[in-house]
């Protein structure tokens, strides 16, 4: 049962990330996703100190805002300060991450988030962290419920606004010309990325989220030219990573999240070899 819940949690994270990651990869914004996944840390710590829980509506809202703020700061230094993008990204996320680590260390007694959890999370604890209803009955593992809501949100977002996302991704100038604001969809997407990062934080940690955002999407990008296929394939790769990752971590007795990432890297490696050999 625990194995099932862990694999389910992993799959929920992986599919959410794969869907958003496909857009990030296509929009050439993978590294902004990386930046956001680091910079939500201070937001998480501050929200935790204010509200006292890692899963609350405030946390999600706070995370969405800080993700948008990160994106905004990167753009701001790039445009107003004429700082090249790579450096702008590098300075912004390390600064916010350092702030987060300092806060974690300072309030280490209050927050039950420690440094290791920031980096790679601990998905193995998911089955024992249950959510209760008002009467005190266990409904199910907290992370599974939260992640299901997030995934549902992403699915609705992508299905309803598929056209807008499609057009702003492939031809932002044309989108602007016909009255679809590229900037708005850019920020909405970034808001969702940070939301997903926060929701996945406890189970896979900040940095491994990046791998799940980028690796399955890049692998799918290599073998298809159709956005719908890319979304489906990358989700599939995410789920496979979750299954095989659990198995690998069982074999090696290592971190589940680390193993998931290793598998998703291997899937990318296979797709890479296939494309290169075909050429």
């Amino acid at each position: 049962m625990d194995a099932f819940i862990i694999i389910l949690t992993g799959s929920l994270v992986a599919v959410s990330c794969a869907l958003l990651g496909s857009f990030l990869v296509l929009r050439k914004m993978a590294m902004i996703g990386d930046a956001i996944s680091h910079s939500v840390l201070p937001g998480i710590v501050i929200a935790f100190l204010l509200v006292g829980s890692l899963q609350s509506v405030w946390m999600i809202i706070g995370a969405g805002l800080i993700g948008v703020l990160t994106t905004f700061l990167i753009e701001f230094f790039h445009q107003k300060g004429k700082l090249q993008t790579d450096a702008s990204i590098g300075v912004t996320f390390t600064w916010l991450f350092a702030l987060g680590v300092i806060l974690v260390t300072y309030y280490a007694g209050n927050a039950h988030i420690d440094q290791d959890c920031i980096l790679h999370g601990e998905i193995a604890y998911v089955p024992i962290d249950l959510m209760y209803d008002d009467a005190g009955n266990a409904i199910g593992p907290k992370a599974v419920i939260v992640l299901s809501v997030v995934l549902a949100l992403i699915l609705v977002f992508i299905t309803v606004f598929y056209k807008e996302l499609f057009i702003t991704t492939f031809d932002p100038d044309f989108a602007n010309a016909i009255g679809i604001s590229s900037a708005r969809w850019h920020y909405l997407l970034m808001g969702l990325v940070s939301l997903t990062t926060v929701a996945s934080f406890e189970s896979v940690g900040a940095i491994l989220v990046v791998a799940l955002l980028i690796a399955p999407a890049s692998a799918a990008y290599l073998i298809t030219r159709d956005l719908k296929w890319m979304l489906m394939l990358s989700s599939l790769f995410g789920i496979v990573s979750s299954f095989l990752g659990y198995w690998l971590s069982y074999l090696l007795d290592g971190s589940i999240a680390g193993a998931m990432v290793t598998i998703s890297g291997a899937i990318f490696g296979i797709c890479y070899l296939v494309t290169v050999l075909k050429k």
């Binding site: 990030l24 990869v25 050439k28 914004m29 993978a30 590294m31 902004i32 996703g33 990386d34 980096l119 790679h120 940095i207 491994l208 990046v210 791998a211 955002l213 980028i214 690796a215 999407a217 890049s218 990008y221 290599l222 690998l248 971590s249 090696l252 007795d253 290592g254 971190s255 999240a257 680390g258 193993a259 998931m260 990432v261 290793t262 998703s264 890297g265 990318f268 890479y272 494309t275 290169v276 050429k279």
Partner: peptide
Amino acid sequence: RNTKIKEDAATGLALSVFFGVGILLMTY
């Protein structure tokens, strides 16, 4: 060089996958 994947995704990919493998080995 060999694929249509752009610099940003390649950067993020190398970074996070190597790190994931590292975490797996370290926890092992």
